[in-house]
Design a protein around this nucleic acid. Structure first.
Lengths: 151, 151
DNA sequence: AAACAATAGTCAAAGATGGTCAGAGAGGTG
DNA sequence: CACCTCTCTGACCATCTTTGACTATTGTTT
């Protein structure tokens, strides 16, 4: 625990212990710990991932920032990961619907949410060759599964 | 939130919270916040767009002004149709987000629903050339707008 | 009508942040 | 030592903001 990454990680987590979310300036933190700015990205990419239960947003340009929030890890994460594996990169409309029903049953989605998503995954919404369509549908479903984790 | 743009935005919105419409003099506002006049145009072009639900008029010359109004559409069905027209067949990620925020404010979507949709409209979810991406995003948003009507 | 004054608009360049990625460095293990 | 993994660094990239020179429009005076 003497490398900068661990020190910065500890520093941020200590703040997150009190505040629910923090907003930092990359340059400031880099200066405080006397390292290059991209070091901060390394810390975030390795210590504040979605798997570890963090949600990170940022903005560039004048008045830019990096915002980190702790999210609650649910048991259902396992199910979501498993579904993610099942989906892979190919998904039919019917299969998509089945997954959505399952998500409703698990109370991970409301009926309204499922309807909205289903409408985006139907073939009319994906104007492209059938094969591409299924790849695209799978890709979108993967996004949904990941997004649910931070809802 | 220490860049001038955000500060001026907050100032104008705070007034718009009480008054239904405001009329400003570009030069005056620029002086009050000690910035160049064209900064005001930047604020308006990025923070008071049609996507965000604002209508802006202006006049040059003596007695010139910039007038900003919040667009109010009482019937949500009409709002959805209006938005549909605004979206057309080309939509940037930023504009999409602005529309979704508007839909939340109009209570036509929940925050969760908007987050799910937004995740599907972001560029990472649409792996294709930039132009196709914007067309696809517009197409999906159209689906969303139509689907909301039957929720 | 022409000239002048008073506004607002446009656009490209500069400034201010954060992001990415490949390679160098450090520490541990067989 | 050879090799592997994790850290660290810096050059280059992407995005948002700020500025100012130039332009366009409208009102007022001559």
């Amino acid at each position: 625990m003497q490398n900068i990454t661990d020190i910065i990680e500890a520093y941020l987590k200590q703040i997150l212990h009190d505040e629910k979310k923090i907003e930092i300036k990359r340059q400031e933190i880099a200066e405080r710990f006397d390292c290059v700015p991209s070091q901060i990205n390394y810390v975030i990419n390795t210590r504040f991932t979605i798997e570890k239960g963090y949600f990170v947003e940022s903005k560039r340009g004048g008045g830019g920032y990096i915002r980190i929030q702790k999210i609650v890890i649910l048991d259902s994460h396992d199910l979501l990961d498993e579904m993610s594996r099942w989906v892979g990169n190919d998904l039919t409309e019917q299969a998509a619907e089945d997954y959505l029903v399952r998500l409703i049953n698990e109370q991970l989605l409301t009926r309204r949410e499922a309807i909205l998503i289903q409408s985006l995954l139907q073939k009319e919404s994906l104007p492209m060759a059938l094969e591409d369509q299924r790849r695209m549908r799978a890709h979108l479903m993967q996004t949904v599964l990941q997004t649910i984790k931070r809802l």
